[in-house]
Amino acid sequence: MVNNKVRENRTVFVAVSVTVLTIYSLLLIVPLLWAVNSALKNSLDLYENVFGLPTKIKPENFLQAFTKISVPINTVSGSRSVNLIEMFYNTIFYAGVGTLVVEFSRCVCAYCVAKYRKYKAMRIFHSIVIVLLVVQLPVALASQIRWFTKIGVYNNMYGLVLISGTFTGAHFLYFYAAFKSISWEYAEAAFMDGASNFAVFFYIMLPQIKATFLALYLLTFISAWNDYSSSLTLMPNYPVVAYGLYKYNSLNAASSVPLQLAGCVLIALPILILFLIFKDKLIGNLNIGGLKG
């Protein structure tokens, strides 16, 4: 009797959740498909035939998007336009290298804190990271601009990437948990073989947490790829693709809509492919735990 009730309850749960999630999924997928379909039309076709398939497919919208979607910038040698190709380069550098710098810094610090806890400094370091997660110290955008201008990294993508290697943030805790779960006996065996602390870290410990590293790298990479505010606030002369789309739209709202939608597809596609390849590594593999410290 009890079992029947439980089974009935489970059936209701499954039916309701599948129905609700299907509707929600459709609400997400349909606009995306509409955008891809519209990106293959010309403006008139889009206006007259909003939902239908393109009367004449225009793949050239995608090629034109690379050159036509551009953003004006002011440099010391005058003003010029940055097209989507250059924006892709900026984004790949900013998101790819910047993410590597910041995640590797967190990884290294988390390793030192997790495995060399016998030193008081490491325990203090751990507490600092946790306190900074809970207590929000003021980081005024105005001060960021003023200070970064002073040290010469404002409006300088390479400089900003260079100083981005801070260790704070929740990702530190993921790395910390990952290193904590690895037995130190591996390291002791390696020390017997004559391995140095560096060899133990790079050849023994780092390979064991590469799934965590990859997942965190991808998470940060995705958010850096999608970030339009860095170009808007700190490096206006190095527009990334998300900012380029924003700026182009705000300056040329009346321009070809299919062209802008083609730009949207081009910007979303690389990150979507990356996600589809690595989604199993991303979802369900991370655990932050609490903030006890």
């Binding site: 999608n226 802008q260 910007i267 979507l272």
Partner: peptide, 20 residues
């Protein structure tokens, strides 16, 4: 996969799709 799409695709892309 589908539910995670909004976190993957840039916010600006969603804004433009929504606007248009």
């Amino acid at each position: 996969t589908v539910l995670f799409l909004p976190q993957i695709i840039p916010g600006m892309v969603w804004v433009l799709i929504y606007k248009y």
